[in-house]
């Protein structure tokens, strides 16, 4: 069921209960966010996707995060008032000391007119560059591995292998966490035969056709076991797999 809402005065339509952030972005609006992924349930951690919403008959506009806000009929949304920009800027200032060189943060800083950092860079963080968006933890869980966790709370919170272990024993080295990290702080190093990630050293799997290593043996084993894609495709790198698919297209009748 679609609902109608207005975004900065423009009318829009969207499926009911869809994330407001996704709706705004789909109609071309810009809202900064560092912890959001359309395919993963929101946790509203970064507090940058702030907007003002007013529900019909509900009086004043309220400040809220948009990623975890489901759209409803008649919603009036403002995506960039002075109040919104002020709070976004402060929350960004709180994250900047952890990843002062990350392009994703700089881009947002620029859009908010943040020129000088309020606080000095934080040194000695358990995972330098990490802004605790938990995208790595969540994407890992969403893919069914649960190799990572948020650990501790308050100013001691960090992400990494569960229970503070040094090695993520359940990690298969798929690299999804490395891929989604907004600050690029998750180290993943491939040598000729192995991949190093989260304290693990995993043997690489080479493409049966072209011989290029494209994932880890452990990851390939899981892919085969899950059967989401034909087993023989699991042995091919992305390029060879595409070629294989193209070759196997059924003839047009």
């Amino acid at each position: 069921m679609d609902v109608r809402l207005t975004i900065d005065g423009h009318e829009a339509k969207a499926p009911k209960d869809m994330s407001l952030l996704d709706v705004v972005r789909r109609v071309g609006g810009e809202i900064p966010a560092l912890c959001h992924h359309e395919g993963i349930a929101p946790i509203a951690a970064c507090r940058l996707c702030l907007v003002e919403v007013r529900r019909p008959g509900r009086g004043e506009a309220v400040l809220t995060t948009s990623c975890d806000y489901p759209v409803s009929e008649g919603l009036e949304v403002v995506t960039a008032s002075p109040r919104i920009r002020r709070h976004r800027a402060m929350n960004l200032q709180l994250l900047l000391p952890y990843a002062p060189d990350a392009p994703a943060l700089h881009e947002i800083a620029e859009s908010l007119g943040v020129t000088a950092p309020l606080f000095a860079p934080v040194t000695g963080a358990p995972l330098p560059g990490c802004i605790l968006c938990e995208l790595c933890v969540r994407v890992c869980a969403a893919l069914g591995y649960h190799a990572l966790a948020a650990i501790g709370r308050g100013d001691h919170k960090r992400v990494g292998p569960p229970f503070g272990r040094s090695v993520a024993t359940a990690c298969v080295g798929c690299g999804a966490c490395h891929e989604v990290c907004p600050t690029g702080c998750i180290a993943m190093e491939d040598t000729a035969t192995t991949r190093r990630i989260w304290g693990r050293e995993l043997e690489l799997f080479t493409c049966r056709r072209c011989g290029k290593p494209f994932t880890t043996v452990a990851h390939r084993t899981v892919m085969v076991a899950r059967g989401d894609i034909p087993a023989e495709s699991c042995d091919l790198c992305e390029t060879c797999r595409s070629r294989d698919y193209a070759r196997r297209l059924a003839p047009v009748r």
């Binding site: 951690a45 970064c46 507090r47 402060m90 802004i131 308050g154 100013d155 001691h156 919170k157």
Partner: peptide, 14 residues
């Protein structure tokens, strides 16, 4: 500061 769950930037860092 030590009892914040650490989810929200504003609370955890603020």
């Amino acid at each position: 500061a030590s009892e914040s769950c650490g989810n929200c930037t504003s609370c955890r860092e603020g």
